[in-house]
Nucleic acid binder design. Structure first.
Length: 392
RNA sequence: GCCAGGAUGGCGGAGCGGUCAAACGCACCAGACUGUAAAUCUGGCGGGGUAACCCUACACUGGUUCGAGUCCAGUUCCUGGCACCA
């Protein structure tokens, strides 16, 4: 039986199994619980739905009776992942790293059965490596091998800095596989180099090399870059339902299929059907399915209705935050106060015709408003405030 | 240690000693267009002021100048290369 059948629908979230499909099948055939490793970088606190992909695969292994070994990279996070090194990396304190780890676990407990999982922190063993062990590890690689790696090659050619510890990063990650005795390692396709390092090190240590299972990366809602919290194009597990739906509808059409495949639990046939139909409908169904996965079908359906009401029918949202202001305020003051922006921003919006009060477009910032309770102040498409008369 | 280059907005990156709140690009915001979008077009994008206008910015400290991101000196940090490698 092939692993594809074992994974069923989830197989569509797997990019590559290497060295080869049959290696994973062979592991399954052994009939013993496998140790399946997933290492996570806890630089940021939010878990994106992209991060969720390997977590779901891990959860599936768990369901199949295998051991989910979740490694919080507390040590490696302090070292810093080479990718994106040119950005000024906020230096995290050990306390922050601990805190981030907790936040992570809190957010993913809906995806993974943490009670049955083996949660480890790689500082547990990495912090204890002594110099001679480090030497042994690092002597297993050549500089040429490292420079083959695309991100290093590019930077080297460009004369950009490459720090020595960046070479060590993947060694550490590889060593994790030895430390937890991994049979399988999961990770995004961007981790191919790193997870393969685990194989090399394990082999040299006389262990059977792990099988690596990579998943496709999910582009962010901007449609270009990899989904990431720092880029600001992400949908996170803790994104409120309303925003989750809204953000999902903002992806470019080209990505609908990919999102359906990677971010929803819809059946393959349903996805195929949606692909043949109206793209706008497919996108909304995707957004609804995604929201449903995290907040339940009922909430998702409600958000869809609400969305259609606000954007398609141009009606007001159901819940509008209130803003209390005394009468006789200028438009500028209202916009500033209600949406807490600088006057510059507020003036700009007004000048550009983005602001309405009770449906009337206000283009003069100095207009004095005598509002009554329930008048809606609007700035742009998605900023609303319900005005109320009262002391400021 | 030596040589060289660099430090400007959220980012990248311009900027003959004066008119720089800072070209251009990206990101972002708004408007138009649409099916929310994306693409495209238009406008905006340090802070305050209705406005005229004012204030704060070009690593830091001094200096030269009527006037300095722009010149000089020192300091800090970054990068590349070279040397050293007992």
């Amino acid at each position: 039986m092939s692993w594809r059948e074992t994974f069923g629908q989830l197989a569509r979230t797997i990019d590559t199994v290497f060295p080869g499909d049959r290696d994973l099948d062979a592991l399954f055939a052994k009939g013993r619980p496998l140790r399946v490793k997933l290492g996570i970088d806890i630089t940021s606190t939010s878990v994106t739905i992209g991060n969720g992909i390997p977590l779901r695969i891990l959860a599936r292994f768990q369901e199949l009776g295998h051991v989910a070994v979740l490694i919080l990279g507390d040590f490696t996070t302090l070292v810093g992942d080479p990718s994106g090194r040119d950005k000024t990396r906020p230096v995290l304190t050990p306390e922050e790293v601990v805190q981030n780890g907790e936040t992570w676990l809190e957010q993913i407990k809906g995806l993974l059965d943490l009670d049955r999982a083996e949660v480890r922190r790689n500082g547990e063993w990495l912090a204890k490596l002594d110099s001679s062990q480090l030497l042994t590890l690092s002597s297993q690689l050549t500089v040429a091998q490292m420079l083959e790696r695309d991100s290093f090659a590019t930077r080297y050619r460009a004369g950009s800095p490459i720090h020595l510890h960046e070479f060590l990063y993947c060694l550490f990650q590889g060593y994790d596989s030895i430390a937890v005795n991994a049979d399988v390692e999961l990770g995004g396709t961007d981790q191919t180099f790193n997870v393969n390092m685990g194989r090399v090190l394990q082999k040299n240590a006389g262990m059977r090399p792990q099988v690596c299972v990579t998943n496709p990366l999910l582009e962010g809602v901007d449609g270009h870059k990899k989904m990431s919290k720092s880029v600001g194009n992400s949908i996170c597990l803790d994104t409120p339902a309303k925003d989750m739906f809204g953000l999902a509808t903002r992806i470019p059409d080209e990505l609908i299929e990919k999102y359906l495949r990677l971010a929803t639990d819809l059946a393959d046939e349903t996805i195929a059907d949606l692909g043949r139909g109206d793209p706008w409908n497919a996108k909304k169904s995707m957004a609804e399915a995604l929201t449903a996965r995290h907040y339940g079908a009922e909430t998702a359906a409600r958000e869809r209705t609400e969305f259609e009401r606000v954007f398609a029918e141009k009606k007001l949202p159901e819940d509008i935050p209130e803003y209390v202001a005394p009468p006789g305020r200028t438009v500028l003051e209202l916009v500033r106060g209600a949406f807490s922006m600088t006057s510059g921003e507020a003036k700009r919006l007004i000048k550009q015709g983005a602001v309405t009060v009770a449906g009337n477009k206000m283009t003069d910032a100095s207009t004095v408003i005598e509002h009554t309770d329930g008048d809606v102040l609007r700035a742009g498409k998605r900023r609303f405030a319900s005005l109320r008369v009262g002391p400021s």
